[in-house]
Design a protein around this nucleic acid. Structure first.
Lengths: 247, 247
DNA sequence: CGAACAAGTCAATGGCGTTGACAAAAGTGT
DNA sequence: ACACTTTTGTCAACGCCATTGACTTGTTCG
């Protein structure tokens, strides 16, 4: 229950409900500072020393508001998670709703990879998360799935987007050298693969760099939703059949 | 390039092809020690000091075999990749080949969650990785895709299985408290969701705990391969059409 | 007003990756 | 066998990190 950090386990016991101490430092201001720092200087900049410097405050002052760095990162993640649904409007077709929502989810997470990496495997159980689950389950119900079927596809879609974002975010948090090395692997080393031992790689090598991250995600999501839609249609057909034979 | 660590950039210039120095320290022994350490004490245990302690060697001795920690992690990752292919036999149908290989990939990674977390995001560009890529591209070629199409589905399938394993592995490496807390979220807090605000969650709640990790992965993979197969058939049909009209 | 306590500061701890200087062992050429 | 070069393990140190305990200062409430 990371919350805003106001609660148990914070240095100096419980906090009064005032608007900041003598430096005007609040969990909200800290989280905002962290996001600014992440956006400006990258994931490696998220250290207590640099956050403190950015806010004009002693680094250890942050411990008055967050128990440790993990709680701080989760608070940042919470703030971002809310943004996914901030101005989200369900579409009139269930498939468009799912596609829009999952795509937005990815964009928000990838805007802040450091927070994403640490939070994809966690369940926050806060209001924003529940609202998102409700929307997805609603879309699947609209597709025609009964609850016991819907939960299966719900888990597939959620785990898919979370894990995919986790992978992309982890990649973004790599150091610059490691990342450029990995990127060169595709265009250089795979292109130089011996055609006798790796014929298919040799044939595919020219096209490997043409795949973009956005296109890759879009295709994966499209493949999944295609299958879900197909099964929804089949499910509806068998239900209709059962109804027809029952009458 | 990075290879086993024997190569450029390693402290002390190039190395002779002897079987270890005066302590019998080799890149292979180091990697094995790392995996043992990861399995036993988790991902945070992978520090030069602890590796050195585990191998009975000065921590900085590792720099004679690996330029930096990144290169070491890559070597560990490739060892895992290699285990996926150790006794793998391609099936006679391309879909079975893909399904078997990706399923094996998951099993190997989840057997060493700590190592998996560190390696899923990396492209190792070593032999084992290339062999796996070749198999997947070969299966897609067998499905009827030309290289420029095959690379798209290759990237989808690989990124899917890597990211999925990363998420599951990250979950397995969470502390016991965090994990049980997250598990309770599904059965307790979601079950107690107010039915007026979250009607679909309320309806689905009883079925949420019935989803297993294995079944979840199997379903996701099945959905993806269904779509890939469908597109392969459609692609073959349009090619046949073009041939028919060309004659 | 004064006691209680929150909130910021300071100094210090131990761990991390990494580096440079050094010593000992192992190979190499004569 | 000898001097040589190169490898490879060791040692001490640097700067960074998160985190802690003891302090000071400001705020707030009885």
């Amino acid at each position: 229950m990371a919350g805003t950090g106001t609660g148990t386990g914070v240095r100096g016991a419980r906090r009064r409900n005032t608007a900041g101490g003598r430096s005007g430092l609040t969990p909200e201001r800290i989280v905002e500072g962290c996001i600014a720092l992440l956006d400006e200087h990258g994931p490696d900049a998220l250290t207590f020393r640099r956050i403190g410097g950015h806010l004009g405050v002693d680094p250890t002052a942050l411990y008055r508001h967050f128990r440790d760095k993990d709680e701080l990162v989760l608070a940042v993640a919470d703030r971002l998670h809310g943004r996914v649904l901030d101005d989200f409007e369900p579409s009139d077709h269930w498939r468009a709703t799912l596609q829009d929502m999952l795509t937005r989810n990815r964009l928000v997470y990838l805007a802040h990879p450091e927070a994403a990496v640490l939070s994809v495997a966690r369940t926050t159980r806060r209001a924003a998360e529940m609202a998102g689950v409700e929307i997805i389950l609603g879309a699947l119900a609209e597709a025609g799935f009964p609850p016991d079927e819907a939960v299966k596809y719900y888990r597939v879609l959620v785990d898919f987007v979370l894990s995919w974002c986790g992978l992309e975010a982890a990649y973004l948090t790599l150091s610059q050298e490691a990342r450029s090395g990995d990127e060169n692997a595709w265009s250089r080393e795979y292109a130089g693969a011996p055609a006798d031992r790796y014929p298919h790689i040799a044939a595919a090598a020219p096209f490997l760099p043409t795949v973009t991250e956005e296109g890759n995600f879009a295709l994966a999501l499209e493949l999944l939703l295609d299958s879900v839609e197909l099964r929804a249609q089949r499910y509806a057909a068998t239900i209709g059949e059962q109804r027809a034979t029952a009458e």
